[in-house]
């Protein structure tokens, strides 16, 4: 079973761009199947979450995208998460890719994502619905 990431605070700052977003990175789905990161589909995330005993898919709608006050290389993306529309902001590098339902990888600066990671990417926009995760059976 996958080990769950730590609980969220309202703002999450990933330390750097993780290596698994580089084109060609091998990703293991919950059923054991291996896929390249650029070949992942929405169904892969949904089916993996269905198999997972800990995690389930939630939808996060992009409500606002603005430049970070700390660095021009960062952006703050505000999401409305799940049916309760909980507000979560994440501060990420502008090239950080999010997976948009039915669309694929998207970032605030897709040109930079493609340049740095070679990952095919579209522009993340307000209204896009991204894949996020939540824990199952939380009380």
């Amino acid at each position: 079973a996958p080990s769950a990431p730590p609980p969220p605070s309202n703002t999450v700052v990933p330390p750097s761009l993780p290596p698994y977003f580089i084109k060609g990175s091998i990703i293991q789905l919950a059923d054991g199947e291996l896929k390249r990161v650029e070949d992942l589909k929405t169904e892969d995330f949904i089916q993996s979450a269905e198999i997972s005993s800990e995690l389930k898919i939630d939808s996060s709608t992009v409500e606002r995208i603005e430049g970070s006050h700390t660095s021009p290389n960062f952006a703050v993306v505000q999401f409305s998460v799940g049916e309760h529309r909980a507000q979560v902001s994440v501060e990420v590098l502008v090239e950080y890719p999010f997976f948009v339902f039915g669309q694929g990888w998207s970032s605030c600066c897709p040109d930079r994502t493609t340049q740095l990671l070679e990952l095919p990417c579209t522009k993340l926009s307000v209204g896009d619905v991204c894949i996020s995760l939540t824990l199952k059976n939380l009380r």
């Binding site: 091998i26 291996l34 909980a86 994440v90």
Partner: peptide, 25 residues
């Protein structure tokens, strides 16, 4: 003999950058 270099394999859930907030109902 040269050992084959192992290719890192990443779990699918690591690609999602954050967990949604816990719902309390």
């Amino acid at each position: 003999n040269v050992e084959p270099r192992s290719v890192p394999v990443f779990p699918w859930h690591s690609l999602v950058p954050f967990l949604a907030p816990t719902q309390s109902d």
